[in-house]
């Protein structure tokens, strides 16, 4: 039986058109992102930085959980390790920002590898509990190792400096955030064009057959933990330098849960989904409270029950999403894109 009546050659693959179109739109997007800070107000700039820093963390978690299938409830703690590393290196050792940044990632990756160690034996819920333990232990350390972490008061730091250029406002910081987002997203995409990314997906889909296909399960699970927490560490470093302070309350268990919700809403196993999820989870709560704020102005008496509604509405939104589009925002986006297909390069 022959499949198909003509012989497609892989060179044609219509790849030429697809890349021309996506290059065009990526170019436009990049230009818009560069223009954005010049037109955006303080509030939008603040939100954009926040979203960007969150995107890096979400991409990291999606690599581990969405692509490699290892559920983690400790992501916030890894972000915390990065944040504290950055703050301690900057204040105690006076290391320049560009050294602190990769070291924060490496330190978080180191912790990620330790926590990921049992992942060969622990699967699913059991691994989830192990990462939960890591989260709680690290939280405890952030609070109680006062001589190093500054306890509940935390550590304050001065704005980062890159090659003599001080990033002392949200406008300047935006360009750092943007550069790091592009770097991390590109690196993540790259990974999934190689055997390393394929091995992650194979482990997620069927780890027994993955091993028989030649994949060293332990090594690749640890790789997934390492890359994921490295990005968490970078995100933590950027976050702490952005707020110019680090305290334990930035990295609670709830934050780990929020990151999981992010990649589920955005789309598990999708880099683009991580971006959508991070933006959604940053902007939507703000939008809800803005709308509620307006309502309170009109109906002052409703104040007492409108404000607690925020969390409920947000939770409901997530549930509605999962019911109607379990593959997340990335899937919705794919459908929109298919609808417009190769525009503007068709024919």
């Amino acid at each position: 039986m022959r499949i198909g009546h003509f012989k497609e050659t892989y060179v044609s693959d219509q790849a030429v058109f697809a890349t021309a179109t996506s290059r065009f739109w990526l170019g436009i997007l990049f230009a818009l992102l560069l223009l954005f800070p010049f037109v955006a107000g303080d509030y939008l700039l603040f939100m954009a930085n926040l979203a960007g820093i969150t995107i890096i963390g979400a991409v990291g978690l999606n690599i581990l959980t969405g692509f490699a299938g290892q559920i983690s409830l400790g992501h916030a703690a890894f972000i915390g390790v990065g944040g504290y590393t950055a703050a301690i290196l900057a204040t105690r050792f006076n290391l320049p920002f560009l050294i602190c940044l990769p070291l924060s990632g490496l330190m978080a990756a180191f912790f990620g590898i330790i926590v990921g160690g049992p992942s060969l034996r622990l699967k699913g819920l059991y691994l989830c509990i192990a990462t939960l333990a890591a989260q709680l232990i690290l939280e405890f350390v952030f609070v109680h190792w006062e001589s190093v972490t500054g306890g509940i008061r935390g550590i304050n730091l001065s704005p980062p400096e890159i090659c003599g250029y001080v990033l002392d406002n949200d406008f300047k910081y935006y360009f750092l955030t943007l550069a790091m987002v592009i770097l991390c997203v590109t690196a993540a995409r790259n990974l999934f064009r190689t055997r390393v990314g394929r091995a992650f997906i194979a482990i997620r889909d069927r780890d027994i057959s993955a091993e028989l296909m030649g994949i060293n399960l332990l090594r690749y699970k640890l790789y997934a933990f390492a890359v994921s927490s490295f990005m968490a560490g970078l995100s933590g470093c950027l976050w702490v330098n952005f707020l110019k302070t680090v305290t334990p309350e930035h990295f609670p268990l709830m934050e780990s849960v929020r990151y999981l919700a992010m990649i589920i809403v955005g789309g598990m196993g999708s880099i683009l989904g991580s971006i959508f999820g991070a933006i959604f989870m940053t902007i939507v709560p703000e939008a809800i409270s803005t709308v509620l704020g307006l309502l309170v102005n009109t109906f002052p008496t409703a104040m007492s029950f409108l404000f607690p509604l925020q969390q409920v509405i947000f939770g409901l939104l997530i549930v509605i999403f999962l019911v109607f589009e379990p593959h997340g925002l990335a899937e919705i986006w794919r459908r929109i894109k298919n609808y417009f297909h190769l525009w503007p390069f068709e024919h």
Partner: peptide, 24 residues
């Protein structure tokens, strides 16, 4: 979670060299 082509490529895993850093 992978295309036909990526499934096939996965079979070649042990004959490839790309590591974590060069993959990123």
């Amino acid at each position: 979670g992978m295309s036909v082509l990526d499934n096939i490529k996965l079979g070649a895993h042990s004959h490839l060299k790309t590591g974590l850093i060069s993959g990123l």
